[in-house]
Amino acid sequence: MWDYTGKVLDHFRNPRNVGVVNKPDGIGEVGSLACGDALKLTFKLDENKRIQDVKFQTFGCASAIASSSALTEMIKGKTIEEAENVTNQDIADYLGGLPEQKMHCSVMGREALLAAIESYRTGGKAHRVLEGKVICKCFGVTEHDIEMVVRENNLATVEQVTHYTKAGGGCGKCKGDIEVIVERIRAERLKAAPPTSAEAAGKRLTTIEKIRRIEETIEKEIRPMLRNDGGDLELIDVEGSRVIVALRGMCARCQVAQFTLKDVVEAKLKEFVSPDLVVEEVSK
């Protein structure tokens, strides 16, 4: 049994806006029978170019149906430009959250929406062609699709990409390719907004600044590395130069956790926050 929210179950049991709009201005179709889920989204604009009517047809599980239903409710009354800004995370949030393994349902909603907008802009006929190289052949997921979810959802691991797009969830042969994409985007992200180096700052940090930077460094630098191995880390407290953390997930059971703590966590915090920091594991 999945841990679905009441809102997911409500939209599954009582889906809103099922069907096909008469003489639609935009049609988006994504997914296939082979993939296990598919969504057809149609909409019609009013004279003010706002989405007057929108309907969906979905083949898929309870959360796929709920995500589709939620999407139609969310974009009704919006302009194309406003609708375009709806992300898959917005759909998941609207439903009070989705299980991580089901995030691909919200991504499917978002993809159908973009496809429908594309078809509207190209005269209501053209369906979206696959953009970019197909990375996952089992589920037909392209490089473009993967890049989009990684950027928009700040994904850090191959496993997360699989939860969000299904890519890598079949034969698994493309996992290496996915990792390359994830790493590339992470590198781009760091280049765009590098965590401020301690030495570059060159001045004493206030406690609040210090905590903020520690959190930022954990988020951007440390957590993605740990998550690759199924682990995680939680910041418990900062007392002077002592940073107290708790290891979670695989890290909590890891034989080399002390090594991770000193050589990864402490080294990164020294590099990006302050050279005098010492990392300690919270006493159990």
Partner: peptide, 14 residues
Amino acid sequence: EYIEGEAILYSLSD
């Protein structure tokens, strides 16, 4: 045909 098993199971479970 045309429908997905999990959606059927949740409907049955209801």
